[in-house]
């Protein structure tokens, strides 16, 4: 059985994908989970392929997750950490693209501080480009693993009520989740301080709650975003304590929920700020499952993209699902 849901050359975000393509990635991730449980955690799928992890922003967990995914598919990986002066940031991107092209790298996983950077790179090189987070724009593999985790625990995505809590304005995780979940038929809401909410967000097809209590009353799932310290320093919220008091996901609040909630967090957590420890370590938290699923989802994405071509993605988006 083959379903042509080809992704094309790159995974830049979830906004351009169809529900069928997203479903194919999630379904493909299932068998890849099993590989991580074997004694020999390797399959020869990407043997001989070179993958560069090009990280312009510091990141431990995402990079390691990708690295494991790549190595478990037998690819050769190279890590380039281009975290440095922002002055060089702009020039470096174009020149980096050209250098990678000249070295004939098969795939590039890029994380960059500017929205649009992944698309910028993808348009300039022939290698497959996977967006590991560009500015505030998208972080597709994170949203995919979030959706996989929700699907694992609740059996479906359609009709599931997911509320994303926190700094939506600056969050690429939020945006990718909004695109992915709405396409898969989930009901999506956002909740956070107004200063951290993007304008016109409801026009993306989501509800907006101003109070965390309303969100908890409504949701089946909470995806809790990290509040970065810089936001407080930039004045968006007066203090972390105030944020926790009015928007923190605490055990007391969850106890008042009408139904058991699934708790997700992309990590790393600010314990005591957006989420309390007893919630993060509690029975409804699936945060560790997210980490496991992260590797499987990334393996699935690498598998599906390798050797892909953009024309097939276009055809796949409009073709009816074959059985």
């Amino acid at each position: 059985m083959q379903v042509d849901t080809a992704l094309g050359k790159d995974l830049v975000g979830l906004e351009p994908l169809s529900a069928a393509q997203i479903r194919a990635i999630l379904d493909t991730a299932e068998p890849f989970k099993e590989i991580s449980e074997r004694a020999i955690k390797k399959v020869p799928v990407l043997r001989g392929k070179t993958i560069v992890n090009l990280f312009f922003e510091p990141s431990t967990r995402t990079r390691i997750s990708f690295e494991f995914a790549e190595k478990r598919l037998s690819a050769d990986t190279v890590n380039i950490s281009a975290v440095g002066s922002s002055v060089a940031k702009g020039e470096t991107l174009v020149d980096t693209a050209r250098n990678l092209e000249a070295m004939k790298i098969d795939m590039v996983v890029i994380r960059h501080g500017s929205s649009g950077a992944a698309r910028f790179l993808a348009d300039r090189i022939e290698s497959n480009v996977i967006n590991a987070g560009d500015g505030r724009h998208e972080h597709p593999t994170q949203a995919l693993l979030d959706m996989l985790t929700i699907r694992d625990h609740l059996g479906r995505l359609e009709g599931v009520r997911v509320c994303i809590v926190g700094d939506i304005l600056h969050s690429r995780v939020a945006r990718s989740n909004i695109w992915g979940l709405t396409k898969m038929g989930a009901e999506v809401a956002v909740c956070g301080p107004r200063t951290l909410m993007p304008p016109y967000v409801t026009e993306l097809g989501v509800q907006q709650f101003s109070r965390i209590e309303e969100a908890i009353e409504w949701a089946d799932v909470l995806n809790v975003l990290r509040l970065q310290l810089e936001r407080m320093q930039a004045g968006y919220v007066p203090s972390l304590r105030e944020y926790n008091r009015f928007f923190g996901v605490t055990r007391a609040r969850l106890l008042r929920a009408p139904r058991p909630l699934l708790i997700l967090h992309p990590g790393p957590m600010n314990r005591g700020v957006e989420i309390d420890s007893d919630v993060a370590d509690g029975p409804h938290s699936v945060i560790l499952d997210q980490v496991t699923n992260g590797i499987a989802v990334r393996m699935a994405v690498l598998y599906l993209l390798a050797g892909g071509a953009p024309e097939r993605a276009e055809a796949a988006k409009s073709a009816p699902e074959a059985v």
Binding site: E15, S115, G116, D134, R136, H137, R175, P199, Y200, L204
Partner: peptide, 10 residues
């Protein structure tokens, strides 16, 4: 500042 900026994350 508008819907397009929200979509693009700018």
């Amino acid at each position: 500042e508008g819907l397009v900026s929200t979509r693009l994350g700018l």
